[in-house]
Measured scan of single mutants.
Amino acid sequence: MSIQHFRVALIPFFAAFCLPVFAHPETLVKVKDAEDQLGARVGYIELDLNSGKILESFRPEERFPMMSTFKVLLCGAVLSRVDAGQEQLGRRIHYSQNDLVEYSPVTEKHLTDGMTVRELCSAAITMSDNTAANLLLTTIGGPKELTAFLHNMGDHVTRLDRWEPELNEAIPNDERDTTMPAAMATTLRKLLTGELLTLASRQQLIDWMEADKVAGPLLRSALPAGWFIADKSGAGERGSRGIIAALGPDGKPSRIVVIYTTGSQATMDERNRQIAEIGASLIKHW
């Protein structure tokens, strides 16, 4: 067993022997301040990774656009098919120029040779490549099948209805392509620590998230040296922004954090800054 596999296998073990965790309302004060600064709703939840206990939450059962955070769930569904012998990570998928959609920095470079399922998941999570996500959605049967996968996990809230990039439209009061912070946090925890996926697939999923290259201005910008984070960000229309993450000190994750916002007129930089400040408060009061 590799060191990384050992780390993920012992996530519940280490967490069980940690000192009790206590909620700190100071972080919620910052979440509410972010709402004021952005002029928009902000949803927040913080779960203990081992027990699933909610440590703090704000608007945990209000719907927010998922945006690209759905790509972690998508690759979880792909990995479940791999575990069941219905898919192979090494299978190569070929596609054409007509398949390319807006923001496809990886797939646009491989029109000639195609990409493997493993490479597509890596591109979808680490670079948020939209064509990679659409190609992977095709392998599982489309958005409705991802929703069905989530329902089978016990998540009857999260739903995907459309493809990239239309799913980022974020129309107010439109339930399409949305989740709730509580539902997303619980589902992410199941994917990373539950028995739904094999140990190898859980490790692969967290490795992809740990290698995320496009979430630097968010929670990662607030992390002290030595902290662990595996995350996936999302951005959408109407001032929408979000991030889902597993993080913790001492090089291992111990909490799940989900943050979503929508309806702001603020710039992307300002949305990023507010999420980073929430992260800084979380870490300060850990």
Rank of each mutant, 00 (worst) to 15 (best):
residue 98 N to M: 10
residue 118 R to S: 09
residue 159 R to C: 14
residue 174 D to I: 02
residue 68 S to A: 15
residue 28 L to Q: 05
residue 67 M to V: 15
residue 153 M to H: 07
residue 140 I to V: 09
residue 220 R to I: 10
residue 224 P to L: 11
residue 245 A to M: 12
residue 59 R to F: 13
residue 146 L to C: 01
residue 136 L to G: 06
residue 192 L to A: 08
residue 64 F to Y: 11
residue 150 L to K: 03
residue 159 R to I: 02
residue 175 E to I: 05
residue 141 G to I: 08
residue 204 Q to T: 12
residue 190 K to D: 12
residue 58 F to D: 01
residue 229 I to Y: 14
residue 262 T to D: 12
residue 183 A to H: 03
residue 251 G to W: 10
residue 35 E to R: 06
residue 232 K to R: 05
residue 246 A to V: 10
residue 255 R to V: 09
residue 103 Y to K: 10
residue 63 R to C: 07
residue 150 L to Y: 14
residue 188 L to D: 15
residue 193 T to Q: 05
residue 240 S to A: 09
residue 34 A to I: 09
residue 40 A to L: 13
residue 277 E to Y: 05
residue 34 A to E: 00
residue 267 T to F: 06
residue 42 V to E: 02
residue 123 A to L: 03
residue 64 F to V: 08
residue 30 K to P: 15
residue 103 Y to F: 11
residue 155 D to S: 09
residue 221 S to Q: 14
residue 58 F to T: 03
residue 39 G to L: 12
residue 134 N to V: 02
residue 51 S to D: 04
residue 134 N to K: 00
residue 39 G to F: 02
residue 256 I to K: 14
residue 57 S to E: 03
residue 280 A to F: 06
residue 73 L to E: 04
residue 261 T to C: 05
residue 171 I to M: 00
residue 280 A to P: 09
residue 163 W to S: 13
residue 121 C to I: 05
residue 225 A to M: 13
residue 25 P to A: 00
residue 218 L to V: 15
residue 184 M to F: 12
residue 218 L to I: 13
residue 220 R to S: 09
residue 76 G to R: 03
residue 250 D to M: 11
residue 277 E to A: 11
residue 232 K to N: 13
residue 187 T to G: 09
residue 190 K to C: 15
residue 57 S to H: 05
residue 165 P to E: 02
residue 192 L to V: 01
residue 258 V to S: 05
residue 86 Q to P: 07
residue 254 S to G: 09
residue 60 P to C: 09
residue 46 E to T: 06
residue 89 L to N: 04
residue 205 L to R: 03
residue 264 S to C: 00
residue 227 W to D: 08
residue 146 L to V: 08
residue 133 A to N: 02
residue 286 W to V: 05
residue 90 G to D: 07
residue 70 F to V: 06
residue 138 T to R: 13
residue 120 L to H: 03
residue 121 C to T: 00
residue 233 S to D: 15
residue 219 L to E: 09
residue 249 P to I: 09
residue 260 Y to A: 06
residue 34 A to V: 04
residue 126 T to Q: 08
residue 203 Q to I: 01
residue 48 D to H: 12
residue 110 H to I: 06
residue 176 R to L: 00
residue 235 A to N: 13
residue 261 T to A: 04
residue 240 S to C: 00
residue 274 Q to H: 13
residue 66 M to I: 13
residue 109 K to V: 06
residue 148 A to Y: 03
residue 128 S to F: 04
residue 159 R to N: 12
residue 273 R to P: 14
residue 209 M to I: 14
residue 138 T to L: 05
residue 53 K to H: 11
residue 179 T to N: 13
residue 24 H to W: 10
residue 185 A to G: 10
residue 190 K to S: 14
residue 115 M to L: 08
residue 244 I to D: 11
residue 117 V to G: 04
residue 47 L to P: 01
residue 177 D to P: 06
residue 250 D to R: 08
residue 83 D to H: 05
residue 119 E to Q: 05
residue 140 I to D: 05
residue 149 F to G: 03
residue 143 P to L: 05
residue 108 E to A: 07
residue 164 E to M: 13
residue 214 V to E: 15
residue 112 T to F: 14
residue 77 A to H: 10
residue 119 E to V: 04
residue 86 Q to W: 11
residue 81 R to D: 12
residue 169 E to S: 08
residue 81 R to Q: 07
residue 167 L to R: 01
residue 172 P to Y: 02
residue 55 L to R: 09
residue 258 V to N: 09
residue 107 T to S: 08
residue 206 I to W: 09
residue 245 A to H: 13
residue 79 L to K: 02
residue 126 T to K: 14
residue 236 G to E: 00
residue 148 A to F: 02
residue 194 G to T: 11
residue 172 P to I: 06
residue 35 E to F: 09
residue 235 A to P: 13
residue 98 N to T: 11
residue 233 S to I: 15
residue 33 D to C: 03
residue 56 E to S: 11
residue 219 L to Y: 13
residue 69 T to K: 07
residue 138 T to A: 12
residue 107 T to A: 11
residue 197 L to H: 02
residue 210 E to A: 14
residue 200 A to W: 03
residue 46 E to M: 08
residue 264 S to M: 02
residue 113 D to Y: 07
residue 106 V to L: 11
residue 42 V to W: 14
residue 188 L to K: 15
residue 38 L to A: 01
residue 242 G to R: 11
residue 112 T to A: 04
residue 131 T to C: 02
residue 221 S to T: 14
residue 278 I to W: 08
residue 39 G to V: 08
residue 212 D to N: 15
residue 199 L to K: 01
residue 251 G to A: 08
residue 280 A to V: 12
residue 63 R to Q: 08
residue 169 E to D: 02
residue 149 F to D: 03
residue 101 V to F: 07
residue 158 T to G: 10
residue 199 L to D: 14
residue 50 N to W: 07
residue 47 L to F: 08
residue 111 L to N: 11
residue 118 R to I: 01
residue 43 G to N: 08
residue 68 S to Q: 14
residue 66 M to N: 05
residue 147 T to D: 02
residue 270 E to I: 10
residue 30 K to Y: 15
residue 94 H to L: 11
residue 263 G to E: 10
residue 205 L to P: 04
residue 188 L to V: 13
residue 281 S to T: 10
residue 46 E to Y: 10
residue 166 E to H: 04
residue 252 K to T: 10
residue 197 L to Y: 07
residue 270 E to L: 02
residue 202 R to F: 06
residue 245 A to K: 11
residue 61 E to K: 00
residue 107 T to Q: 04
residue 65 P to I: 07
residue 226 G to E: 07
residue 80 S to M: 07
residue 65 P to F: 02
residue 194 G to Y: 08
residue 174 D to C: 06
residue 245 A to I: 08
residue 252 K to Q: 05
residue 247 L to H: 02
residue 243 I to C: 06
residue 251 G to F: 09
residue 250 D to F: 14
residue 97 Q to R: 03
residue 169 E to C: 00
residue 47 L to A: 02
residue 168 N to H: 08
residue 116 T to A: 05
residue 126 T to A: 11
residue 152 N to E: 15
residue 218 L to F: 14
residue 244 I to L: 11
residue 267 T to L: 08
residue 76 G to Y: 11
residue 185 A to R: 01
residue 218 L to N: 14
residue 201 S to K: 00
residue 130 N to W: 14
residue 159 R to V: 06
residue 193 T to V: 07
residue 127 M to W: 07
residue 50 N to S: 09
residue 261 T to D: 07
residue 178 T to L: 12
residue 193 T to I: 05
residue 194 G to M: 11
residue 68 S to N: 11
residue 226 G to I: 07
residue 175 E to N: 08
residue 243 I to G: 10
residue 206 I to K: 01
residue 57 S to R: 02
residue 160 L to G: 12
residue 199 L to A: 08
residue 122 S to A: 11
residue 259 I to W: 01
residue 234 G to S: 14
residue 259 I to G: 08
residue 203 Q to W: 02
residue 186 T to S: 03
residue 250 D to K: 12
residue 44 Y to A: 02
residue 163 W to V: 12
residue 171 I to G: 00
residue 189 R to V: 15
residue 240 S to G: 00
residue 77 A to R: 06
residue 161 D to Y: 04
residue 29 V to H: 12
